[in-house]
Design a protein around this nucleic acid. Structure first.
Length: 461
DNA sequence: AGCACA
């Protein structure tokens, strides 16, 4: 009973001016479909990225004969229909028109609507957006704003061709990680077309730019945005250094006290002041060193590492804009060691000493479900090659595949890892050392060199 | 490699 109800074969299907195409390359662009089909007639509609794999499409010709000519051409051709080298299978659709649900978002224009997922608006500067999208052509204007969909940007190119090349290359991809604050783990771009053709930018500000009119007035209330980290000529983020570090503490399962922070950060030099505060529902701390060099060493060494074994209380460090903290000399959230007895540096009240707490990350399963698979997709297609290699070592670490969270971390943590290198000695010679050794060497080894005994976290509870 | 507003 079932055999007679099986789907029909191609040659028994009734012709339709709508063709069904399958086995397309992933997210095949409409332009590619049109390129393939237009020799046979006028295309009046398309529907792309159909099916679970988004590798099917429909093309509707103006006339039935045009569809027939295409099907019969490839039925007898020795060369199969191909897009990007993949054989495309063509047959008549079982419908006779494409229901047109095309939104303006799918209609190419010179202005892109970009939704930047997974970041706070202040974490992606307009310079970063400009840098990424300039790889495809001259960016005329950028306007950023916050909507329910998240942080969004309108990006105006010269023409729809340039815009679509940017869209095709970047949609679903992530902004390179080194252009983002260290604690941002993923940041995906969702790109559609805007119905705008010309953005009306009133001011140069941290939210909007008109690159065609550099003399546009700067919005005075938006000036602070211009003071954000700048992108240098090499495309690297250039954070202004500071003797004060801003630490964001991720996955804070255990209390992080001033004393714990003091112990951790004292491994790299004298800690002058510490302040702990809450921001955006997370815990942050400012740690003041006497000089920028010490802060830089601490930052490089500790970035991405966890205070406690098991991925707890993971540190993300950046430079603060502050240079001298004004803090209460002694409170549960702050400490000023410059006016306290120096014995504070080694005496930690309420913190029984135990040497066994500075575990490394080895064998710790990934504690985030984050999937970084898209990062390799990026690697395959950086925007027009303007941006240097994402991470040449990324693919070469099979042991890390079961722990993507750490893979990524390791690849982006150029901390010095040689246990023979005490804190304070030149970190630059160790930058870029294999993250393999980092995985095997507990970061606590960094402490070798006479750091005070660490406090006992509530490990194992 | 086999049909789309869900």
């Amino acid at each position: 009973m079932s055999t007679s109800s099986q789907p029909q074969f191609r040659y028994t299907q009734t012709p339709s001016k709508v063709l069904h195409l399958r086995n397309l390359p992933w997210e095949c662009a409409e332009e590619e479909l049109v390129e393939l089909c237009k020799p046979f007639g006028k295309i009046v509609n398309t529907k792309c990225n159909v099916g679970a794999n988004r590798n099917q499409a429909f093309v509707e010709f103006a006339d039935l004969n045009q569809a027939i000519s295409m099907v019969s051409y490839y039925a007898s051709s020795s060369e199969p229909a191909q897009i990007r080298g993949k054989t495309v299978y063509i047959q008549y659709s079982n419908r006779h028109e494409i229901v047109n649900n095309k939104s303006p978002a799918d209609t190419p224009g010179n202005v892109l609507l970009v939704t930047i997922e997974g970041v706070e608006p202040n974490e992606v500067t307009i310079e970063t957006i400009h840098l990424v999208f300039s790889a495809f052509g001259f960016v005329h204007k950028i306007a950023t704003f916050e909507k329910a969909a998240g942080f969004q940007a309108l990006i105006q190119f010269t023409d729809a061709e340039t815009a679509s090349s940017a869209r095709n290359a970047l949609d679903g991809r992530s902004i390179p990680r080194y252009l983002l604050p260290d604690h941002v783990t993923s940041c995906y771009l969702r790109i559609s077309y805007s119905a705008h053709t010309d953005l009306n930018i009133k001011f140069q500000s941290h939210r909007s730019r008109d690159y065609t009119n550099p003399y546009l007035p700067v919005n005075p209330t938006a000036m602070e945005g211009l003071m954000q980290p700048v992108v240098g000529p090499d495309g690297k983020k250039q954070e202004p250094q500071s003797n004060v570090l801003l630490a964001s503490i991720e996955n804070m399962q255990y209390a992080v006290t001033v004393d714990v922070l003091h112990t951790v950060f004292s491994a790299f030099g004298t800690v002058q002041k510490i302040a702990i505060f809450e921001k955006n529902g997370g815990t942050q701390a400012l740690i003041q060193y006497p000089d920028v060099t010490t802060a830089a060493v601490a930052k490089e060494s500790l970035e991405g590492h966890c205070i406690y074994d098991g991925g707890y209380c993971k540190l993300h460090l950046s430079y603060s804009r502050h240079t001298d903290l004004i803090v209460k000399a002694y409170s549960d959230k702050s400490r000023d060691y410059t006016i306290s007895a120096p014995s504070f540096a080694t005496q930690i009240p309420g913190m029984p000493a135990a040497p066994n707490v500075w575990h490394n990350l080895q064998g710790v399963p990934a504690h985030h479900g984050t999937d970084y698979s898209a990062s390799s997709a990026i690697q395959a297609q950086p925007p027009a090659g303007q941006i240097p290699a994402w991470d040449p070592n990324f693919q070469a670490r099979p042991p890390y595949e079961s722990a993507p969270g750490q893979t990524y971390q390791a690849s982006s943590v150029p901390s010095y890892v040689n246990p023979a290198t005490p804190p304070g000695s030149s970190p630059s010679s160790q930058v870029g050392a294999s993250s393999m050794s980092m995985q095997q060497q507990p970061w606590a080894n960094v402490r070798q060199g006479g750091a005070p005994e660490p406090g006992q976290p509530p490990h194992g509870q």
